[in-house]
Computed example of a mutant assay.
Amino acid sequence: MDFWEQIKTPGMSLKCSGLYLAQFRYTSPDLLAGGDGTKSASIVGDVYVHPSAKVHPTAKIGPNVSISANVRIGAGVRLIGCIILDDVEVQENAVVINSIVGWKSSIGKWSRVQADGDYNAKLGITILGEAVIVEDEVVVVNSIVLPNKTLNVSVQDEIIL
């Protein structure tokens, strides 16, 4: 298997996560989050939120989102088709679409971490490794960022080593 074949594997993680969440609707509906945007975040479709996560009531989440333990989601955040791993902070008005955000990462205010969602493309999803910092107002599109990096400029179609 060459490098690009290995890179495509995380795209399957997002696809499989969506399938698991859809299955929970029938097998374990109590695991799926609910919310109408008043006292809790607005939830669209199948979404899992770990009980220890703190989600601002003005956030809009889903479909196909999984939020792990000790995650902090700020006001006005929009999450679509993503996996947010443990101890991540997504600050106010940030957007995450078709991405995997690694443990202990931080996404700054008004930032975007997104991909087009084409799982067959070389960089069809965005992946942030462990402890990646995306500073305020930075856009990361169709990119892979290895652990312990800080992004203070926008990137597209890049692998940040």
Rank of each mutant, 00 (worst) to 15 (best):
T38I: 09
R25K: 09
D87M: 12
V77E: 03
R72V: 14
V155K: 08
G129Q: 03
N70P: 08
L19Q: 11
D46W: 01
D157C: 00
V132R: 02
P57K: 13
S40H: 05
E158N: 15
G108V: 03
I61C: 11
E158S: 15
E5F: 04
P51M: 05
I61V: 11
A75G: 12
H50K: 13
Q91A: 02
P10C: 08
D116N: 10
M12E: 08
V153E: 15
A131S: 14
A115Q: 10
G35E: 09
S68N: 14
R72Y: 13
K60E: 10
K15Y: 11
K60H: 10
N98D: 00
G37S: 15
S111N: 03
V155W: 08
N148T: 13
V44A: 09
P10M: 06
V77Y: 00
L128K: 00
V141N: 01
I43T: 05
G18A: 09
G76A: 09
D36N: 12
Q114A: 10
I83Q: 02
V96W: 00
E89W: 01
V77N: 05
P63D: 06
A59S: 06
S154K: 07
E135P: 04
A121K: 14
G34A: 10
P29Q: 05
T38E: 12
Y48N: 02
V71C: 11
K60Q: 11
I100N: 05
P63H: 07
V49L: 12
M12D: 09
L161H: 13
L31E: 07
G35H: 07
A75F: 05
P147W: 07
A121L: 02
P63V: 11
Q91I: 00
V65D: 01
G129S: 05
I159M: 08
L31A: 10
V55Q: 03
N98L: 05
I125T: 04
M1T: 13
S28R: 15
I7D: 01
A53Y: 03
H56F: 11
D136K: 07
I160L: 06
V77D: 02
S17A: 14
A22T: 13
S66Y: 10
I159Q: 01
D30K: 09
V55R: 00
G117C: 08
L85K: 15
V153H: 14
L79Y: 01
V90P: 04
I160S: 08
I43A: 06
G37F: 12
G117E: 05
L123D: 02
D136M: 03
N120K: 11
D2F: 10
E130T: 15
D30E: 15
W110E: 04
Q114I: 07
A22K: 06
V44M: 08
M12N: 12
V77A: 06
P57N: 12
L14V: 00
I67C: 00
G45K: 10
V139S: 11
G34E: 13
Q23Y: 10
I100M: 13
I125M: 03
E158F: 12
V141C: 02
E5W: 04
D86V: 01
K15T: 11
I159H: 03
V153N: 15
K54H: 15
